[in-house]
Simulated assay, not measured.
Amino acid sequence: MTLRAGLFLLALLAAPLQSAADPAGAARTAAAQLEGASVQLQEAGSSRDRVKALTATVQAFEAGLAAMRDGLRRVARREAQLSAQLAARQEEVSGLLGIIQTIETSPPPVLMVHPSGPLGAARSAMMLAEVTPALHARAQSLKADLDEVQSLRLLQQNAARTLEEGLAGVQSARVQLSTAIADRTTLPKRFTADPVRTAILISSTETLSGFADGLAEIAGGDIAGTSADITELRGTLPLPVEGLLLRGYGERDAAGIARPGLLIAARPRALVTAPAAATIRYRGPLLDLGNVVILEPQPDTLFVLSGLAEVFGEAGQVIPAGTPVGLMSGENPKPDAILSLSGEGGGTDRTETLYIEVRMDNSPVDPETWFRTGKGG
């Protein structure tokens, strides 16, 4: 290889690599989040308000696991990018190594000989003096890339244990939360549901509208009045579950069916919470909607949440904003399943759906007038 070819090769190798954020740092930060959630779980048992403490713990685990998934996706993308760049430069790297090896092994008399005589030898020596530091710098850069690839692969291997501990922790927190909610007796109640009347209403109605219209009939006595008013919160309420908007109000699905509500894609077993202080008007199976929670945040306004695997609380209870009302369907993913998804785009692990309908004066309205969905912003 001539010196001119060597200089051309060096120019190719010196092309700047595509910059990227620190994916390894993101994954390590997520691991620290999961460790912090484990500490929260240990402390939740001694909290005066166990429901509140365990709710925060479950949410901390869910946030940590989501961050870990995102971090591992970034790690996988970075590792693939580096591997592809190194593979594409394999011939160039071989040439670089050949140049370095020639410089290191050629005896001084040979290096000093030049066909053009002493002047050509002097020019070659000057060019070589300029090229050698650059060759060394590029070699160091390649070594750094190789070291990063090895570090990222090791991080992915170690992530399996962190994920396993995090998944076990969030499952334990969910079980403890369900027990704590069942044991809680301090919430005020506006009415006590009559199971017989509730069963009669369910069997005699065929639509959500008909059931909502007859909700007053499920109480065993009078329903206490309320002056609750959350009108000023319209458009600012958080979604009941962390997720992505799949289908908007009135949009048709693949079967051509349009429903007057939102469909949110959520992760399996994700915690569903009350977006505002409300009365639980109904909880349980209903029609073809699966498990349903109907919340009344103010008179003549209902939030209908369907698609849950488990529902918490009792009909008639008045619950604060952020109170858990259920868990999404699905199975807890295994660490291997999460790792296998790490190279894919966001949203691939949100396999469950929550349907949200808002009814005012027993007529459906667009839920996006109440909730922040992130759509368009």
Rank of each mutant, 00 (worst) to 15 (best):
E217W: 09
P333W: 08
L308K: 02
A199V: 00
T231L: 07
W370F: 15
L167S: 02
A139T: 13
L163Y: 06
P285L: 05
A14C: 01
E352S: 04
L289K: 01
I280E: 04
A80K: 13
S306Q: 07
P285K: 07
Q40T: 03
W370C: 00
V170T: 08
V51D: 04
V358Y: 01
A139E: 13
R74H: 14
G284H: 01
Q156R: 15
R161Y: 08
A87T: 14
I99S: 01
Y249K: 06
A44F: 08
S83E: 15
D253H: 07
Q101P: 00
G284E: 07
G98N: 11
D349P: 05
D336C: 00
R74E: 11
D253I: 05
A265E: 04
L152Y: 03
R190F: 03
Q18Y: 00
A66S: 15
A254I: 09
H114W: 07
R252Q: 13
V93L: 15
G64D: 08
D253W: 06
L97S: 15
I257D: 15
E91W: 07
L286Y: 09
M127W: 11
L237H: 05
G261C: 02
T57G: 10
R74C: 01
D213G: 05
I264P: 01
A266M: 04
P109Y: 07
V241D: 03
A180G: 10
L302I: 09
G376W: 12
Q171T: 13
G6L: 08
